[in-house]
């Protein structure tokens, strides 16, 4: 450092926030879910998480090096991409597929656009969807674990609760199980089949609250998202209780909690205005329910968020706040 005084533009004070600190907070918030998944899925959960995180970091470093840019892995964003991708994979997935997904997520979806901040789509979700479309069998082959849960009753099909509902309603026209307190509790703590990180609503909520307290996310997207799903499914359920799942089941199953708290709230790919965030959350909720109810996939969270990612620039454009002092309800500037 030189002895010269530093001169910069104002302000000369700063809140002390940093991208790295935000990323670190998200990682901390993901730890409870990781612990629960290790508890339920054992070694496989650890294997996939490690594979994804290490690959993401390596891919980030290598691709940046290949582009002749600074090594930018110390912002920790690649760790989050890795963890989120792993959390969206079934426990039985071969390691090499996880590696392929990670490389796709980091290289194609992030670094090709210029790295952190420039990617239009959430890399982890895009990686997951790519895997789902490329390897549908592996991506929907659920646990061979015998979970101590009434929801894992069918060891042969070993489907996720949502998958089970889709197939059973399709063939028998009735729901496969009842919704007593025990079932709900099992869903809440995470004793269900599913991708390794999405099973435990309790652990994810804990992490989500941490993020809210640390001001890494605001309430707008998660609340709008979850409320939309609850209202949408509630209407369906009241209309046809035999054909539709109740709202609390929708909220606690599948990737909804993980998506609403950690992936829809990804700063880079979600709107910047508060109103935009609400629109984004509502859109995610509607699309999720559309796909869950009528689509070809049992779960629609990933697709819903990706689709909303795509229209985020348009949402930002449409929800531009009224400049202080500009006429109220006046003409919008183009």
């Amino acid at each position: 450092m030189s002895d010269l005084a530093i001169v910069s533009s104002s302000p000369h004070a700063h809140s002390g926030s940093s991208v790295r600190r935000i990323m670190l907070d998200v990682i901390i918030a993901l730890v409870p879910a990781l612990l629960v998944s290790v508890y339920f899925f054992g070694w496989d959960a650890l294997r996939l998480t490690l594979a994804c995180v290490i690959t993401c970091l390596a891919a980030e470093a290598l691709s940046r090096k290949a582009m002749g840019r600074n090594l930018g892995i110390d912002d920790l964003s690649a760790v989050i991409t890795g963890m989120l991708l792993a959390f969206n994979l079934p426990p039985t997935l071969p390691t090499w597929m996880a590696v392929v997904g990670s490389v796709f997520a980091i290289v194609i979806c992030k670094q090709l656009f210029g790295g952190i901040g420039y990617n239009p789509f959430n890399p982890a979700l895009a990686g997951r969807v790519m895997l789902l479309i490329s390897f549908p069998v592996f991506m929907t082959r659920w646990s061979e674990w015998t979970l101590p849960s009434p929801l894992a009753m069918d060891a042969v099909t070993s489907a996720t609760p949502l998958g089970l509902v889709k197939t059973t309603i399709g063939s028998t026209g009735a729901l496969p199980f009842t919704f007593d307190g025990t079932t709900m509790l099992q869903l809440f703590v995470g004793n269900q089949n599913g991708c390794i990180g999405e099973v435990s609503a309790a652990a994810l909520l804990l992490g989500g609250i941490y993020l809210l307290v640390r001001r890494c996310i605001t309430w707008h997207i998660p609340v709008a998202y979850l409320a939309t799903v609850a209202v949408f499914s509630g209407i369906l359920w009241m209309h046809h209780p035999q054909q539709n799942l109740p709202p609390h089941f929708h909220l606690l199953s599948g990737g909804l909690m993980l998506g609403a708290l950690f992936m829809a709230t990804d700063m880079v790919t979600s709107p910047v205005t508060k109103r935009g965030m609400l629109v984004f959350g509502v859109g995610c909720g509607i699309l999720t329910m559309l796909i869950r109810k009528w689509g070809g996939y049992p779960e629609g969270v990933s697709f819903a968020i990706l689709l909303m990612n795509a229209i985020t620039p348009l949402i930002n454009r449409a929800t531009r706040p009224r400049v202080f002092g500009a006429p109220k309800g006046g003409k919008k500037q183009s």
Binding site: S2, L4, A5, I6, V7, S9
Partner: peptide, 19 residues
């Protein structure tokens, strides 16, 4: 030489307007 340690946008017009 430099007379101070400029920290900011790497653009002459911005630098000129800062100190």
């Amino acid at each position: 030489p430099r007379k101070f340690d400029y920290n900011g946008v790497a653009d002459c017009r911005a630098a000129q307007a800062t100190g």
